[in-house]
């Protein structure tokens, strides 16, 4: 079971009736366990539109999708028997700036809202709220607090806990770390990585931060003008040719590695994907 897109196109309607092609013939398969994927691309390239298809908030103008066994096509007639609720429960989507969507008087109630909406009992929802708040790295004492008096990073964690409490198979997050300071960003990325490794869930993150892509992702998707132009290994993505063609920002690690190699002829070959590995190698070649 997976998410499978076949020739999916999506056209936004505009006032002048010209329309705007936000997705252009996208074919992609996302497994429902064990993946850690980053989705990148310039503003307006179709990233958010793509993930809103993955839990059927939007349906294709052309082409079809199979989401965890449910077929969704481009006509209302064919989709009339589709049950959308189970899809939205199984594919959890966290919007950009989810903290703006917190609304309950306590953190606990806010986290319980989603599962209760999907028919989970009060006591089960309570249990899940406690589990979810711990997964995102906050302790139980947060449950009784008002979500409005939390810091930006804490609010983001609470809203992610709200999605986790629905126990989705796939977790999708739209720019979850934007606006966070470096420590807040690293801590949250660690949370996603934990969800991926310890719960074996598929996690997909939209980001503009190439360091995140290079350091964490097993697979990277690149969108450009509505088309999916790259689907594969992050290490291969950052080759000279792709960087020039797609106007990519180069991860700090690669910039530094390349500069050291070409200016000091130090051997920086092999897989060096994070700060720790880079420092270790430098120590070896310099001492």
């Amino acid at each position: 079971m997976a998410i499978k897109f076949e020739h999916v196109s999506f056209q936004y309607k505009s006032i002048d009736n010209k329309g705007y092609l936000a997705l252009d013939d996208v074919n992609v398969v996302i497994e429902n366990t064990g993946e850690f994927i980053t989705l990148i691309g310039e503003t307006g390239s179709g990233k958010s539109t793509l993930v809103q298809h993955m839990n059927a908030l939007l349906t294709p103008s052309k082409g079809s999708m199979n989401i965890l066994g449910v077929k969704i096509s481009s006509t209302a007639k064919e989709n009339k028997d589709v049950q959308f609720n189970p899809i939205r429960k199984q594919v959890g989507l966290v919007f950009q700036f989810p903290e703006y969507q917190l609304f309950e008087e306590t953190v606990e109630k806010d986290i319980m809202f989603g599962p209760k909406n999907f028919g989970v009992s009060e006591s089960e929802a309570k249990k899940r709220a406690r589990e979810a708040i711990n997964i995102v790295g906050l302790d139980d004492s947060y449950l009784s607090r008002s979500p409005f008096n939390l810091s930006g990073g804490e609010k983001k964690r609470v809203s992610i806990a709200g999605i986790l409490a629905m126990e989705p198979d796939i977790l999708i997050l739209d720019e979850p770390t934007s606006g966070l300071d470096p420590r807040g960003r690293d801590a949250l990325l660690e949370v996603f990585y934990q969800i991926h490794t310890s719960l074996n869930k598929t996690v997909l993150i939209i980001t503009h931060d190439m360091n995140t892509v290079y350091e964490y992702a097993k697979r990277v998707l690149v969108m450009r003008e509505g088309a999916l132009v790259y689907d594969g290994d992050p290490v291969k993505l950052f080759s000279r040719k792709n960087i020039d063609n797609w106007n990519l920002d180069v991860p700090d690690i690669i910039q530094l590695k390349d500069a050291l190699e070409s200016n000091f002829h130090l051997d920086m070959s092999g897989t060096i994907r994070n700060k720790k590995a880079l420092l270790k190698r430098l120590e070896e070649v310099l001492s």
């Binding site: 470096p182 807040g184 690690i253 530094l256 700060k275 880079l278 430098l282």
Partner: peptide, 11 residues
């Protein structure tokens, strides 16, 4: 203060 050194300076 939750900030970081730029990578080359960290090195």
């Amino acid at each position: 203060s939750n900030l970081e050194l730029l990578l080359p300076l960290e090195v």
